[in-house]
Structure formats: structure tokens, C-alpha cells
Computed example of a mutant assay.
Amino acid sequence: MLRTQFEEDLLNLHNQFYEMGMLVSNAIHKSVRSYVKHDKALAQEVIEHDETINGMEIRLEKKSFEMIALQQPVTTDLRMIITVMKASSDLERMGDHAVSIAKSTIRVKGETRILEIEKEISEMSDYVKKMVDNVLVAYVKTDEKDARMIAQMDKRTNDYYHDIYYKTIAAMKANPETVVSGTDYLYVAQYLERIGDYVTNICEWIVYLATGKISELSSNHHEPV
């Protein structure tokens, strides 16, 4: 009886993690849409929903500790619980970055904007959101091969970041009126780049779940100087 209860708890943990991931993916999408479309109401929605995401992480962590303490799971089961705990904390941080982007939307009022760079930020966010959605599927399937592939996608996120960085600096030099919005573009691109790093972390946890080994999958990126 206990065993089936444990299996049910494990499945619930699994499902709640996926649900939390979908909320985070949605928050990322909405935050950038609000930023590019100057939609303050949408930005506000992202900020308010963050409490739900944080609450889910706290519940997942509490349940995980409980299961470890009461059931003393071994091998694969233990790996799954550890993966959920670690990966949900990565998701929670991704949600925080979505909130930071939403806050940027509310901050940038009537400043001179650079549409070409905003278009690229929008493309970068679509790409990052695709990584988030893909990693959730790889998690559900415990697909090591996909996890490694998704981690490789992060290289392009870093390329986007560097590209936006240099274009923004050039624009700010050419037209001082773009300095306020330009500084903000740098922040937003950096938040997206960090989200890509957290996706890579989750890929590492999926590999751990599949193999029991901790692997370093991140493409070592360097900040532009």
C-alpha cells in the first residue's frame, strides 16, 4: 500500500513540476510581449502571477523533503526527487527574470526606442521560450539525448546576447537619446541569456536523472567587455 502511495506522490511531483514549467514559459512569453508592445497591463499580470510560481516551488520542495524523510527512497526514485527539487529552483529563477523584464516595461516611459533591436529581443525571447518548452518535454520523457541537444541550443542564446549588446552600444554612441532605452535593452537581453543558462542547468539534471551522473553541459560564455 505504502509503495503505491509513494508512486502516486512521485507522479504528482512530476506533474506539478511540469505545470510550474508551463507557467514559467508563459511568464517569459508574456513579459517580452509586454515589453515590445509597451503593454503595462500585461506586464503587471506577469508580476502578480510570480507569487503562484514561487508558491509552487515552495510546495514542491516541502513535498520532496517529506518524501525523502518518510519513504527513504533509493536510486532512481531518489534521483527523481532531487531532480525536481533542483530543477524547480532553476524554474523559479527563470520566473524571476521574467518579472524583471515585465518591470522594465513599466519603467520605460516615452523614451526613444530602437525598433531593430526590439525586434531582435523579441526573436531571442521566442528562441529562449522554445528552449524552455523543449526542456519540459525532455524532462517528462527523461530524454538524455534531447537534453544534451537543448543544452547546445544555448550557444545561440549567447550569440543573440552579444549581437544585441554590440548593436545597442553602437546605437547609444550614435544617438545619446537612446541611452535610457538602450541600457534597458542590455538588461532585458541579459535576463533572457540567464534564462538560457537555467534551461541548460535543467538539461544537466535530466542527464543526471537518466544516468546518475552529473555532467557539465553549459557552453562557456563570456560577457562582452
Rank of each mutant, 00 (worst) to 15 (best):
T157F: 02
T178P: 06
R113V: 11
Y166R: 13
E144T: 02
N12Q: 15
I101H: 01
Y165R: 08
K173H: 11
I28A: 12
H29E: 15
I150T: 11
I58H: 07
V188D: 04
I114L: 09
I53A: 04
T200H: 09
S219E: 10
D143T: 07
S25M: 05
H162E: 15
H222R: 12
M80C: 02
I164R: 04
I195W: 02
V108H: 00
Q72V: 12
W205N: 12
V128P: 01
M124T: 04
L60S: 03
M172E: 08
E92Q: 08
I82H: 02
M94F: 10
Y139L: 14
I114T: 02
E57R: 14
I58E: 10
M94L: 11
T83M: 12
D90T: 01
S64Y: 04
D159K: 11
E51A: 11
Y166I: 04
Y191D: 08
N134R: 13
L13A: 06
I58S: 08
D159W: 03
N12Y: 11
R194Q: 10
R148K: 15
I121K: 04
M20C: 04
T142P: 00
E111C: 09
D197F: 08
V188G: 05
Q5T: 12
E7S: 07
N54A: 07
I53D: 03
S64I: 04
G196S: 08
S215T: 12
E177F: 04
T157D: 05
A102R: 01
R194S: 10
H221I: 05
V108C: 03
A171S: 14
M153D: 15
E8T: 12
K167A: 13
R194K: 15
H49I: 00
Q190V: 00
T4Y: 10
E61F: 08
K141E: 15
M1F: 08
E66I: 03
S88A: 14
S218L: 09
D39S: 09
M20A: 09
Q190I: 00
R93Q: 09
L186E: 03
A27C: 07
K119G: 02
K40T: 15
T183K: 09
D159C: 03
H29G: 09
T4A: 10
I121M: 08
V188Q: 06
K130C: 03
A98P: 02
M20F: 04
K40W: 00
T52V: 14
E48G: 02
Y166F: 15
E120K: 15
M94G: 10
T75C: 12
H14P: 00
S31Q: 05
N220R: 12
E177C: 03
A69I: 04
S104Q: 13
Y187D: 02
T168C: 11
R79S: 06
I150P: 07
N175R: 09
K109R: 13
I81T: 06
N175Y: 03
E92D: 10
F17L: 14
S219D: 09
S89W: 01
E19V: 00
T112N: 10
L11Y: 12
